[in-house]
Design a protein around this nucleic acid. Structure first.
Lengths: 146, 146
DNA sequence: CTCGGTGCAAATGCTTTGCAATGTC
DNA sequence: GACATTGCAAAGCATTTGCACCGAG
């Protein structure tokens, strides 16, 4: 839907930072936009490769960092040994329930949580930039399996 | 203070799980108990080494996992490429403010947060096992530096 | 034409693993 | 004595880096 808006956004970010507009960077962005859930760097690399792109892993990592810096994607570490990303463009902030059994990730939004975070930061005179609440456990489906 | 209680705890856990009581495992536990803040596996290994212990990295990692399973320590991933641990024995649950500038980690406790988490889990029929709220940003000291 | 960006492969850093030796039960 | 646990070094895996080449500005 807002693919063009995302591209515009990225273009502006690149120009503003005096980064070059390269086809590789936009190939990565397009690949990112195809993913609806969470994805990782290597998955994205494979996805690009299978769609005929010749972008290298190095460029994928490099571009993911740029996309994160300009707010188009969010990066997470769900207690695994690799990072996960997801589209952030035009989406409200949300947090995650992570099933340790099946690996499923459930998203949720909580206004109250946002307020608590604001309060905690104020109390500690801390300037928040980003946050993540991760709840690990067992999802409904996996509980029923027993 | 509760060093003996921690050791008891670990002993019981090992026996219950049919794990063997080895000196190496207790050397790791003792080293863990010496640390008041957050520490990582390699730091612990070095600490053990410098105090004359011959425990290997493999054993450190193995034992840290056991200690985590029996609730004596907690494991975190603060967006870095390595895991961090901290004593959990006899401490209330708390969360973290992480300064992206100086790396300082501030702990905080929030009852309201606990309640929200309970509610979110109920709504999603999710069975929580552990959780972590991480707020990344800039601490008071680093804000003043500018 | 300049210098930032790219691909490739090698390097890195944390963590795990394979295996023979060791020590607990 | 059986077999889980250990130390060591090598392997794994995600990510980064060095460098020669390429192409955007």
């Amino acid at each position: 839907m807002d693919i063009d808006a995302a591209k515009d956004n990225f273009t502006k970010y690149l120009k503003a930072g005096n980064y070059r507009i390269t086809p590789e960077r936009f190939q990565v962005l397009e690949s990112v936009l195809k993913n609806d859930g969470h994805f990782d760097a290597d998955g994205l690399f494979l996805q690009l490769k299978s769609s005929g792109s010749k972008v290298s892993r190095a460029t994928v990592y490099n571009t993911l960092e740029l996309l994160q810096d300009c707010g188009l994607i969010s990066k997470y570490r769900f207690g695994e040994n690799h990072s996960r990303y997801e589209k952030a463009f035009g989406r409200p902030h949300h947090d995650h329930l992570i099933c340790l059994e099946c690996g499923d990730i459930i998203e949720f939004v909580s206004d109250k949580l946002t307020k608590i975070q604001t309060d905690v930061c104020k109390e500690n005179e801390f300037k928040s930039q980003s946050s993540t609440l991760q709840i690990f456990g067992k999802c409904k489906k996996c509980q029923e399996k027993e």
